[in-house]
Design a protein around this nucleic acid. Structure first.
Lengths: 199, 199
DNA sequence: GACAATAACTGCATCGAGTGCAGAATTGCA
DNA sequence: TGCAATTCTGCACTCGATGCAGTTATTGTC
């Protein structure tokens, strides 16, 4: 890795940290890109060569989770049924919420309920990730599972979990407590499974 | 209904029509709010007293669908199981796609794949609607279905359908043909049901 | 170590979405 | 007709985002 690359990684990190700091202190809408850039000691214009938009900073690590889920699918046992593989893959994503130690992850949960732009972007990312997972799931079961079926299966699982989670987080209201959020994710997964397995 | 109200309705309609026309001709991003306002013969500033944002114009009638779904839930038979009621409610929303005769609905499908802002907003609306339906579903089965369970159930159904639909629409690519889209919705529902009923 | 090529950074000008404000125009009602 | 309540509108402004052009830093080569 060249100096250039290392520097770029460092700057990227600086932007995320500066943004985290400011978002925590002032909130999302009240923080301007110019302020983030200034805090990260770069020009405002440079910010946009690292992130295409302000929301993007909040989802800097999201790609890694999808990659992890896809890897989990690839690691399927020879005769493991699709639903089981999918469950393992989604648990992987959920566990990554142990990354909830990350302050940005906490902010994400908080802004999910208050900032439309963040909510919309999150929904879009989830949707895309779901589509990607479905693609790989279908590929892992050639001849056995069409891509459309894989899409339905993935959608059902993810939908059930997020549907339950939405209700739980509503009740949790106004709290950012990482432990509580994690517990909610676990509970949502359990309930989703129960509901899914006996219609 | 006073003259004032009637005029307001008429203006709202004029905005939607003007926007539809321009979106069809020039695309979403290429159409500015100022142009829409001019075509609807109002000031740019006035546009924002009818719609809070540019995307909102595309979802002008969306509320009606959610209301219809909720009504379907209220009409449940005395001993109808939750899953059946939910299915009826969601079919109601799907049928409303016969509203696909509406040019704006066609645009929605088209921009869903091409314009991030529209995609995000659509996801958010779906999410909120889902939450609302879950709330009513739980209320329709007091003591029998907790709100969290209702959330999981609704999420699973909606997720399965949209998951399957996403794949189907991808294949349909670049086509706006209303009939094809409707057929895709039906197929998605069928597959979702099949997947859902035998895990 | 000097040098050219390449990539990254930056300020500037610009556009479009969205908001607050204050005054003009319109409608409702007596 | 006259007055109050709404609605419409232009204006000024903020902020996110993009294109452009000039400057600076990094890299590989001689």
């Amino acid at each position: 890795m060249s100096l250039r690359d290392r520097k770029r990684v460092r700057t990227r990190q600086a932007i995320v940290e500066a943004a985290t700091e400011l978002f925590e202190k002032r909130g999302y809408d009240e923080t301007t890109v110019a302020e983030i850039a200034a805090a990260a000691e770069i020009g405002t214009r440079t910010f946009f060569s690292y992130f295409t938009s302000k929301e993007e900073v909040m989802f800097a690590e999201s790609d890694a989770r999808v990659v992890a889920a896809i890897k989990a699918i690839a690691d399927r046992a020879p005769d493991e049924p699709p639903a089981s593989v999918l469950l393992r893959a989604l648990r992987t994503v959920g566990e990554d919420s142990d990354d909830m130690g990350s302050r940005m992850a906490a902010l994400r949960v908080r802004f999910l309920r208050t900032v439309p732009a963040v909510r919309g972007r999150a929904a879009q990312i989830q949707f895309d990730a779901q589509r990607e997972i479905a693609r790989h799931l279908a590929a892992a079961y050639p001849g056995e599972l069409t891509e459309v079926q894989a899409g339905a299966l993935t959608g059902a699982f993810v939908g059930a979990v997020t549907g339950a989670l939405a209700v739980l987080l509503d009740d949790l209201s106004e709290q950012d407590d990482p432990a509580a959020v994690q517990a909610a994710v676990r509970e949502a997964t359990d309930i989703a499974l129960a509901v899914y397995l006996k219609p």
